[in-house]
Design a protein around this nucleic acid. Structure first.
Length: 497
RNA sequence: GGCGCGGUACCCAAGAGGCUAAGGGAGAGGUCUGCAAAACCUCGAUUCGGCGGUUCGAGUCCGCCCCGCGCCUCCA
């Protein structure tokens, strides 16, 4: 059974989708007025983990993520640059998708844009007018929260105790009550507008999510995600609009991701302490390590971003990759042992149990590391066979459909018979198990490995070390083991800055 | 002021009444080795922000206090 912490009830609850075997998921996407920062992607990675885990557990997931391409900031940005709205937002949309791919985040089924769903929004506003939840003032339409008694249920906010911020009063639009919010904003000088049945203007912020979620997922759907800062007012307002319009429950499970902080402070554009994915990768070019870092703190806990933490994630990931490669590429004797099935069953159980418990990623990672430890011990004792390796490899691939970070390191131990070479019995040679499975290595590089082995046999260590350095600069790492020289292909380290 | 989250080893981080307080990183010792690196093995908190209380038994429940953070206004 899968449990999720539901913001609506404030409790962990058993997850039961409306239609068995199918999950309808809506996640709040970016407002494309600037480049998204890591904090934004922490939320998208959490949602990706959620989605991948549901798929792993056999659910079909229909995932919608909106793109807010019209709001105060996009309009301001476009006007400042003297370009039209679409031209302005497109470069941020492109950057967003590029980062999504870099972080190996699965694409949503649809990324509806606000500007392409004006008629759907107008239809909801009309319904709200008709049912008496909306009123018009100076060409704008507002939602009257006094008409919706359940208002505040999600955020647990008691309106009477709310201390309105100063900027509420500074709102340029006329409202009956401060907390009423705009559904539709009347046409204004210097702003894009649409001619509609409810008059010329543009949508308020919240209405797009109500309109687009119901269009693609239905009036009631399973899960709605976002950052905690969306709980109020955005999601509260969505509930009010949608439930007032449809007369039905809007969403069963609300899951909210906590913030990513930097130096103890929330990372946000308004504070100016943001950092983007490309900026991070300029310092440490390892997207999978970044993904692991963002993934490995539980989503309801604040995550403090630092490059030290990124280094730790990278080291941990290398260990996993090393192990995955050892299982996938290294040949073992035919057969199987009895213990590996047991180790795997235990790891599988922990992995599922962990993620089933409100996405407890720590427990899931523990399952993986304990597996690694136990199998490594078995390998060290030569108590590990080829069929064991296949099963472990399969398991790793399976959990990697959820984690999305593992790339087995391809490497091979070259057995060079230096003694026989010295006696001129055979030429030195690098023995490779399966050429097609090997990482990229040139004949020249192989030749160098052989020449280094010759140098070592002749105790010309200066030459041997020089060759090792040359290969390292080319991304081929040499390691002398008791079985021979082992090489692996690694990314060539980049100089920061 | 209201609502909410968190404080567990040098760092990150599980655990939410009872077998020896997961796991990762760093560190120490070891195997291997020309050296190095890597890989692997072993070790590591008598103690969970503080003080009281409940209990046979408390990181875990209750009370008070201290500290950090978020939301209440556009924000993932």
């Amino acid at each position: 059974m899968i449990n999720f912490f539901n913001t609506l009830t404030g409790k962990k609850e058993a997850f039961v989708p409306i239609n068995a075997g199918e999950v309808k998921l809506y996640t709040c996407g970016p407002t494309v007025y600037d480049f998204a920062h890591v904090g934004n992607f922490r939320a998208y990675i959490f949602e990706d983990l959620l989605k991948r885990f549901l798929q792993f557990m056999g659910y079909k997931v229909v995932h919608i993520m909106n793109i807010t391409d019209i709001d105060d900031k996009t309009i301001r940005g476009a006007n400042a640059q003297g370009v039209d709205l679409n031209t302005y937002t497109q470069k941020y949309i492109d950057a967003f998708f590029k980062d999504i791919d870099t972080l190996n985040i699965l694409r949503a089924d649809t990324y509806p844009r606000a500007t392409e769903h004006i008629p759907e929004m107008v239809a909801i506003v009309k319904q709200l007018i008709q049912k008496g939840y909306a009123y018009k003032k100076d060409g704008s339409y507002y939602f009257s929260i006094a008409k919706f008694p359940a208002y505040g249920r999600l955020s647990k906010i008691n309106l009477e105790e709310l201390q309105p911020g100063q900027r509420v009063d500074a709102d340029e639009y006329e409202k009956e009550t401060v907390h009423d919010f705009a559904l539709w904003k009347a046409k204004k000088e210097g702003e894009p507008f649409w001619e509609t049945e409810i008059g010329p203007g543009r949508p308020g912020w919240h209405i797009e999510c109500s309109a687009m979620s119901s269009k693609y997922l239905g009036e009631t759907f399973d899960i709605h995600c976002g950052g905690v800062d969306n709980i109020f007012p955005h999601h509260e307002n969505e509930i009010a609009q949608s439930e007032a319009a449809s007369g039905k429950k809007f969403v069963d499970y609300w899951l909210h991701c906590h913030h990513l902080i930097r130096d103890g402070e929330k990372m946000s554009k308004s504070r100016g302490n943001t950092i983007t994915i490309p900026e991070i990768l300029k310092v440490k070019n390892n997207p999978a390590a970044l993904r692991l870092l963002l993934l490995s703190t539980h989503y309801r806990k604040t995550l403090n971003f630092s490059f030290q933490a990124l280094d730790q994630a990278e080291t941990a990931l290398e260990r996993i990759n090393e192990f995955a490669g050892k299982v996938k590429y290294v040949p073992y004797p035919e057969g199987e042992t009895s213990q590996v099935a047991r180790i795997l069953a235990e790891a599988d159980q922990w992995f599922r149990a962990g993620l089933s418990d409100d996405l407890n990623i720590s427990k899931a990672m523990t399952a993986l590391f304990n597996l690694i430890k136990k199998v490594d011990v078995a390998i060290a004792r030569a108590d590990f066979k080829s069929q064991d390796a296949q099963k472990v490899d399969l398991f790793i691939r399976s959990i990697n459909t959820v984690l999305g970070v593992i790339t087995p390191i391809k490497s091979e131990t070259a057995v060079v018979d230096t003694l026989r070479h010295k006696l001129n019995l055979i030429p030195p040679r690098v023995i490779v198990a399966d050429e097609t499975e090997m990482p990229k290595i040139t004949a020249q590089q192989k030749d160098k490995i052989e020449r280094r082995q010759e140098a070592r046999a002749e105790k010309d260590f200066a030459k041997a070390d020089q060759i090792r350095d040359e290969l390292a600069a080319e991304g081929i790492l040499l390691e002398d083991t008791k079985d021979g020289v082992r090489w692996k292909a690694v990314p060539i380290p980049k100089k920061p800055g």
